[in-house]
Design a protein around this nucleic acid. Structure first.
Lengths: 134, 134
DNA sequence: ATGAATGCAAAAACTTTGCATGACG
DNA sequence: CGTCATGCAAAGTTTTTGCATTCAT
């Protein structure tokens, strides 16, 4: 029920928004840059402007439908906001991005924030890794 | 002995490189964008091109002299690589960036990588926090 | 002297904006 | 129908590159 998701976010239901939502849902890997989304739209023979892609992604982010991350190569990537928070692990050799969740990290982060007199609002964590030598 | 640092990195000792190194050393806060560095150079009446700033920062990064981070606003910031690794905490209300180090986190990250069959090369972690309500 | 480094300007990459047209509710 | 959304093109940002000149060793 993507329609409902959009309405709930106060956004009109339009073809571009539905298509982009659909692309984000079926994306593998989950992380797409605006260009990635645009390219996939082209492949599906949709004539949707790149500007619209940016606008829609930004709106989606504002509405909490997607999350925006900045990996260390400097371009923004978007990913559908699922309820299950997770962090990222990047294989520096292959560039492959993996997702993982570790409760110990989550707990520790909240604790560290507290120890400094703050409360944790959110966090980003990316582990750059390499296959362990066998 | 910045001279030695540069030579050790295989870089010729030039005015731009020395000046930029100096700026990074005395920077408060530690994190400067290329523009920030450029602006400070202008203030010191140095006529060094912005392109050179980018080139030098990139070289420094390659040489391990500085670290590059991408905070969530999308522009790259550079910071002198000190031996003491640390992570960052950003106060979402004030925008203030703080540094901290926590061995428990470091250890846990290595452990998580290992559990997934990888070895940790490096990592970035930013905690977005807010002052705890009193 | 010779290769590396610089400055400038031009270009590339990424993202945002203005405006007229078209679509949603 | 009124407004909001879109497409296109133009402009903004940030970063990179080409090339002639200058500098370090």
């Amino acid at each position: 029920m993507d329609n409902a998701d959009l309405r709930r976010a106060g956004l009109k239901v339009t073809v571009p928004r539905l298509k982009i939502l659909e692309i984000l849902e079926s994306a593998e890997p989950h992380h797409l840059s605006a260009e990635d989304v645009y390219r996939k739209l082209m492949e599906s023979d949709e004539s949707i402007g790149l500007a619209t892609v940016y606008r829609v992604l930004t709106q989606f982010e504002g509405a909490g439908l997607v999350e925006r991350h900045n990996f260390d190569d400097g371009r923004a990537v978007y990913e559908l906001a699922s309820d299950d928070h997770h962090d990222h692990m990047v294989d520096v050799d292959s560039g492959r991005v993996m997702e993982f969740f570790d409760e110990r990290i989550e707990r520790l982060q909240r604790e560290i924030a507290r120890e400094h007199g703050f409360e944790l609002v959110e966090h980003t964590m990316v582990l750059y890794v390499r296959k362990a030598k066998s």
